[in-house]
Amino acid sequence: MPAKPVTIKEIAKLLEVSTSTVSRALHDHPSIGLATTQKVKKLAKELQYERNQTAIFFQQGRTYTIGVILPELSEAFFSAAISAIEDTAYKRNYTVLLAQSHDDELKEKQLVEKMKHHRVDGLLVSISKNTSSFEHFNSLSKYNIPVVFFDRIPALDNIHSVSCNLETGTVEAVSYLLKKGHRAIGMINGPDTLFASKQRREGYIKAMLKNRLKFDPSLLVNCDLTEVSTQKALDELLANRRKVTAVVTFNDYVWLYAMQYARKLGIRINEELEYVSYANLPITSYMSCAPLASVEQFPYQQGQKATEILLDLLNSREKEPKQQAYYNVLVESQLVDKQGKDQQLE
């Protein structure tokens, strides 16, 4: 059986002094004589005594732990964000507690409760695709636990958030295809519950109007980001009265589902049907039928900035408990031309 950690109480019993004397001696309190302090420290070292960090944190009113709730840890996008979160948090002596919702609203709510019970000082969240209410996050304010949303953010006003400018990114993506001569451009968007889906839709419409073209709502379809749903969405686009020659997909995973399905239907990729996507996952660069372009959303920068904001909120909480300003950071996207040339958004 592993030995139990030595306590201050046990040291005090062996030296026949009070626990407060041992505690003060270990902290070099001036009220304790030098001889007693040396005896206490000597015995503590011999017994391999270690300070109870949990008790110390409890006294300080913080645990130096931040929670992170993401849809899927396995996605390359979120892996990059996690690296930034850990890099930034560890520099300021914070531990990161990770959890994934698997895009399930109920599990997300359960995870928020678990994070609260683990006494995290603050929370970083990218919401699930199915999250439709946000009371579970609002309730954290009662416990003085700040929340910073990033990437997938709620369509709410009074929140701290970091996200990518997907509207301008979509304008660039659609304009890119228009310049290549496409006119019947479909879009496989994400669930309506995601604010990011609304941003893509608005960007699509703006691109059409910017290029003096009429917006055709039948060319814009939604999916739930799964393979089966993506296939149904592509079927709907291919059945359109207009011959769709290009498709903008919600992200590179949706593009992969749509591309593979199109190939099964005998469609020649990047000849009969061309794609532009989002996220710019590194793996797409090694594929022979990669999307023509992908909108880079800079996950590392998003994760880094979100963590910096959360830690600043925790720091200012002690100095200014009634902090009321909300941080809403928008990271500019970049259209990456897979054919060789990057197009920086203006």
Score class of each variant (00 low, 15 high):
V244Y: 05
T230F: 03
R241A: 14
K243I: 07
D235T: 01
V221K: 00
N222R: 01
N251Q: 01
L238G: 02
L256Y: 13
S229V: 10
F250Q: 04
V244I: 10
S229N: 11
Y253I: 15
M259T: 06
C223Q: 13
R241P: 08
R241H: 10
W255H: 15
V247W: 00
W255V: 15
T230E: 02
E236T: 11
N251V: 08
A246E: 05
L238S: 10
C223A: 15
W255S: 15
R242A: 13
R241G: 06
V228K: 10
N251I: 09
D252P: 04
D235I: 00
Y257C: 11
V247E: 00
T230N: 03
L225K: 08
V248A: 14
Y257A: 14
S229F: 07
D252I: 05
V221H: 00
Y257S: 14
L237D: 01
T230P: 04
N222A: 05
K243H: 03
V248R: 14
V244R: 03
F250T: 13
W255Y: 15
L225N: 12
M259S: 15
T245F: 08
E227M: 03
T249D: 05
C223V: 09
D224T: 07
V228G: 03
Y257G: 08
A246G: 07
A258P: 09
D252F: 05
V254R: 07
N240C: 11
A239C: 12
A233C: 08
D252Y: 03
T245Q: 04
K232Y: 05
L238Q: 12
N240W: 09
Y253K: 08
D235C: 01
E227I: 02
L238V: 12
L238C: 09
A258G: 13
T226Y: 05
Q231W: 03
V228A: 05
N240E: 07
C223G: 12
Y253S: 10
V221D: 03
A258Y: 08
V221N: 00
L237I: 02
L225Q: 13
Y257H: 15
D224R: 14
R242M: 11
F250R: 10
E236D: 02
E236V: 00
L256N: 11
L234K: 15
V247Y: 00
K243E: 11
D252E: 09
V247P: 01
D252N: 06
N222V: 01
L238M: 13
T230L: 05
L256D: 12
A233N: 05
V247Q: 01
V221T: 01
D224A: 09
N222P: 00
Y257K: 11
V247I: 15
T226Q: 09
D252W: 02
M259R: 14
T230A: 04
K243D: 06
V248S: 08
Y253G: 07
Q231K: 05
D252A: 10
F250H: 06
L225I: 13
L256Q: 13
N240I: 14
E227Y: 01
V221S: 01
L225G: 06
Y257D: 13
E236M: 01
K243G: 02
E227N: 06
N251C: 03
V244S: 02
L225Y: 12
C223H: 13
Y257L: 03
D235F: 00
A239T: 14
A246S: 13
T226H: 08
L256W: 10
